[in-house]
């Protein structure tokens, strides 16, 4: 087991390295020079050259990558071209806001998905199952930006119950765990939770229904286990595939949704990315994508290890 964990962690290193290469080069695949968009057209060539040298744009791309990687490994993500502040600070602030929103959406989506998916799978083919399936299909099919706007129209504009955008009067600095601040979380959380809710509920339902169809469930009943005892076995068996999907969705939620954060002007990583793309703020782009991608790798690693502890058959593969 320990050997498996070490091996799995070791595998994550080349993946992370590959991710960093992709993150770095993606920016160079898009046309246009970041400095061109920032500087006025009549900037003297010497000034352009000086700035290029300052940000390292004058070196060959592979050298730029190694230089950047070296800095990244020491915790230096460079400075934002747009704001001039260190990238690490910008990402840190955005990431904490996104994590807050993401954690709320994870809590809502995962809890509801397990409940409604579990009920659907357990009552496979019955009316309640059909209701659950409809909810799940709704969740998967409705575009979240549309839902976000509808929620804003209903609850913020028409009913005037909840704030429409932002994190409060003084932005993320003034955000606390008081009722007034939490109000700002409600609409984006619902909007963000809907899609993972649908996807996970469907997986839970399919997984539970499949496990219940296995022959060993009959053995469990033949052993005289109570329905609760049977359920304990069903949960552990159904957990592995559900965890895989949850891991992916967790990664998405933590990564922040560009669309949802933009609709609600939530100052998270999605919002940061969106602005960085518009402003061609290359260091911010590279840094944010890298951090998010690494979190994805980490999530997958954790899911893999968790799955292994749940299902002993995975260890052999």
């Amino acid at each position: 087991m320990l050997y498996y964990i070490l091996r799995r962690i070791l595998y994550a290193v080349p993946i992370a390295l590959g991710v960093s290469i992709v993150c770095f080069s993606l920016v160079y695949l898009a046309p246009g020079d970041p400095l061109q968009t920032l500087l006025p057209d009549d900037t003297p060539p010497e000034a352009v050259a000086e700035l290029k040298a300052k940000y390292g744009f004058d070196r060959p791309v592979p050298m730029q990558y190694l230089f950047w990687l070296g800095n990244v490994l020491t915790g230096d993500f460079g400075t934002s071209i747009g704001t001039g502040r260190p990238v690490i600070e910008e990402i840190g602030r955005a990431l904490s806001n996104t994590l807050l929103l993401g954690a709320c959406a994870v809590a809502v989506a995962f809890t509801l998905a397990i409940i409604i998916g579990g009920v659907g799978g357990y009552l496979h083919g019955k009316v309640s199952d059909k209701v659950v399936t409809s909810i799940a299909i709704f969740g998967v099919s409705v575009p979240n930006y549309w839902l976000g706007i509808i929620l804003v129209i209903v609850f913020a504009v028409e009913l005037n119950l909840l704030p429409a955008v932002g994190m409060g009067k003084s932005g993320s600095q003034g955000f606390g765990l008081d009722l007034e601040s939490l109000k700002y979380l409600i609409l984006p959380t619902i909007t963000l939770a809907l899609v993972p809710l649908g996807i996970i509920a469907r997986t839970v339902r399919a997984s539970v229904a499949e496990v219940l169809g296995h022959e060993f469930v009959q053995t469990l009943r033949a052993k005289g286990l109570s329905e609760r005892g049977v359920l304990r076995h069903v949960v552990k068996n159904a957990a592995a595939p559900v965890l895989a999907v949850m891991g992916l969705q967790f990664g998405h939620l933590i990564g922040g949704s560009i669309v949802v954060e933009t609709v609600f002007s939530w100052p998270g990583t999605g919002f940061l990315l969106n602005n960085a793309i518009l402003r061609r703020d290359v260091p911010i782009l590279q840094g944010t994508i890298l951090v998010l991608a690494l979190m994805f790798v980490l999530t997958n690693l954790l899911v893999d290890l968790l799955q292994t502890t749940l299902d002993p058959r995975i260890r052999r593969a």
């Binding site: 022959e215 060993f216 469990l220 109570s226």
Partner: peptide, 27 residues
């Protein structure tokens, strides 16, 4: 249902045809 569960396994027990699929694979 409850008294049936109490009966199963203790008074009347069953061996299945396929021992591979009759056991829960994760315990």
């Amino acid at each position: 249902g409850r008294s049936m569960a109490a009966l199963r396994g203790s008074t009347i027990s069953m061996i299945f045809q396929e021992p591979m699929t009759a056991f829960d694979p994760v315990y």
